[in-house]
């Protein structure tokens, strides 16, 4: 199958304005867009700049707009697009470094602002002794948002993100992920950043972020839940959360009567041990 790739090209050091360059190549049934781009880079035009790493939708480096929709190039098969002309553009709302590579530093700075880590009032994090207790339902409450790979597709799809001061879908989703974590105690520290005109209230629920998310994170859901949380807090209806306690020390462990003894060791720490054992 012959496909024309119409690729956005722009080198700020040389070009005055962006332009599109067409490459006609033959692809197989399962060829992904990333594979096609690498083919173009290796065989046709080595000046093409692409960012990629894992090639399997884990690292989130190869995000780009494919036929106008933000997607991961490594997860998108050319045959799925059902078009003989594939338009490849960099993610929108980010400054372009070169061709399809955009600058994420603004996004990562915003991510840092919402303190994406567990905050505790006690000193357990500084001097850890044991693990925190977390129930399975509490874990599943945050798991969906913890799967975010920070690929920036949601930021590119969001119609509000042209406002550079807006925190953005994935940053707010991460804020919700830490706020709703049963082990976290930092709701008040993050509250002012999220409850600002450029925080979660800037979202108007277009829902595109959730539609394009390659990991099913559903940032729109997280943002609406943040709004709900802030509203209930302001109305004084929110239950005051106490951070999960540290697991108590293990008491004397006794083997159940019906559990058999383990077989003898077959792997030893070193030869000396094994010789002694034998």
């Amino acid at each position: 199958m012959e496909v024309v790739f119409k690729i956005h090209r722009f080198d700020p050091s040389k070009d005055v304005s962006p332009y599109y360059k067409q490459y006609k190549i033959t692809i197989d049934k399962g060829t992904t867009v990333l594979e096609a781009l690498l083919y173009i880079k290796e065989r046709l035009d080595n000046s093409l700049a692409i960012r990629y790493s894992c090639r399997m939708g884990i690292c989130g480096s190869c995000g780009m707009r494919i036929n106008g929709i933000p997607m991961l190039a490594c997860k998108t098969q050319v045959s799925m697009l059902k078009s003989n002309i594939i338009l490849i553009e960099p993610l929108s709302n980010n400054p372009i470094i070169k061709d399809l590579v955009t600058n994420f530093s603004n996004l990562f700075a915003k991510h840092k602002m919402i303190k994406p880590y567990i905050i505790r009032k006690d000193s357990e994090l500084d001097n850890p002794t044991r693990e925190y207790l977390q129930k399975p339902n509490e874990f599943f409450n945050i798991l969906q948002f913890a799967l975010c790979i920070k690929c920036g597709l949601c930021w590119s799809a969001c119609p509000i993100s042209s406002d550079n001061r807006y925190l953005g879908p994935f940053v707010l989703a991460q804020a919700y992920r830490y706020i709703s974590d049963s082990r976290d105690d930092g709701y008040n520290e993050r509250f002012d950043i999220i409850d600002s005109p450029h925080g979660c209230w800037r979202c108007h629920f277009a829902g595109s972020c959730s539609q394009v998310c390659p990991r099913g994170v559903d940032p729109a859901l997280a943002i609406q839940l943040l709004k709900k949380s802030i509203t209930t807090t302001k109305l004084g209806l929110k239950k005051i959360k106490t951070a999960a306690p540290v697991a108590p020390p293990l008491t004397e462990v006794t083997r159940k009567l019906d559990v058999p003894q383990p077989p003898p060791r077959t792997v030893f720490k070193n030869q000396r041990d094994s010789t002694n054992e034998r």
Binding site: K6, Y19, Y20, K21, Q22, Y23, K24, I25, T26, L44, D45, N67, G68, L81, K82, S83, N84, I85, I86, L87
Partner: peptide, 16 residues
């Protein structure tokens, strides 16, 4: 295989 350059991109038949 061929390479052509254009300043403007034509409207491609991709779905919205």
């Amino acid at each position: 295989m061929s390479i052509t350059e254009t300043k403007k991109h034509a409207v491609a038949s991709y779905p919205k």
